[in-house]
Computed example of a mutant assay.
Amino acid sequence: MKKILLLAVFILAALSCSEEDDSFLVLDVNYFPLEIENSWTYSNQSYSNTENSQGTETLTINNQDGNRFNFTQLIDSNAGLFTSVLASGEVYKQSGNQKIIYDGNLSLALDNKLQNFEFPLDDIILYDANLSQGDVMFSNAGELQQNINGFPVDFEYEINSTHKGFLISEVINDVTYEDIFVSEIISHFLQVSF
């Protein structure tokens, strides 16, 4: 009798979790409401070996061209990488609120004496409700050439975005956020040639 009761509880729990996960993933949640004048304020912190710094910035949707939206970035101090990338491109949605995509450029400054690295980011999927946790939403490899002190240097890079799942809630700076989508964007250089 104990075995049957234990098996029944296990099956009920498995079905309950399965139904909850399925309904949670198919919700048409508007994770990033794209409308003119919508804005988001970020508190940024950066840590290095020698100093820690804090700052705030605000991203505001300032322009719409069809279904594509551009941002203005107002920086108090200490801009974030992700927000800087968003401000240098445009975001659009497909399939209602089911997919959010970014087009633009990433600019990385290595040193004050060197020119910034610029490479295109086209059709980067930031969110896709039709994928599951752990799925790669976007993967792209490419090459770029940068002039460093008068010498051409070739770089091979790869960019990946991964669906990292959902959180029911998260508290950040004493504010509780609900229905949070978590993604991870990783870029790295594979090879440098002189």
Rank of each mutant, 00 (worst) to 15 (best):
M1W: 03
M1E: 12
K3L: 12
K3E: 13
I4Y: 04
I4K: 02
I4L: 09
I4H: 03
I4F: 01
I4V: 14
L5M: 10
L6E: 10
L6K: 04
L6S: 07
L6M: 08
L6P: 01
L6W: 03
L7F: 01
L7M: 09
L7V: 07
L7G: 02
L7W: 01
A8T: 04
A8E: 08
V9A: 15
V9H: 05
V9K: 02
F10C: 13
F10W: 05
F10S: 08
F10L: 15
I11Y: 00
L12F: 05
L12V: 04
L12D: 02
L12R: 01
A13T: 02
A13H: 05
A13K: 01
A13C: 09
A13V: 09
A14I: 06
A14Y: 09
A14W: 07
L15P: 00
L15S: 09
L15N: 04
L15A: 10
L15G: 10
S16P: 01
S16M: 12
C17H: 05
C17N: 06
C17P: 01
C17G: 08
S18V: 09
S18C: 15
E19A: 14
E20A: 15
E20R: 09
E20L: 15
E20H: 10
D21P: 00
D21K: 08
D21W: 01
S23M: 15
S23D: 11
S23H: 11
S23N: 13
F24Q: 11
F24V: 12
F24S: 14
F24H: 02
F24G: 09
F24I: 11
L25R: 05
V26D: 09
V26Q: 08
L27N: 10
L27Q: 08
L27D: 08
D28N: 11
D28G: 06
V29T: 10
N30H: 04
Y31K: 01
Y31G: 04
F32M: 12
F32Q: 00
F32L: 12
P33E: 11
P33I: 06
P33M: 13
P33L: 11
L34W: 03
L34C: 05
E35N: 10
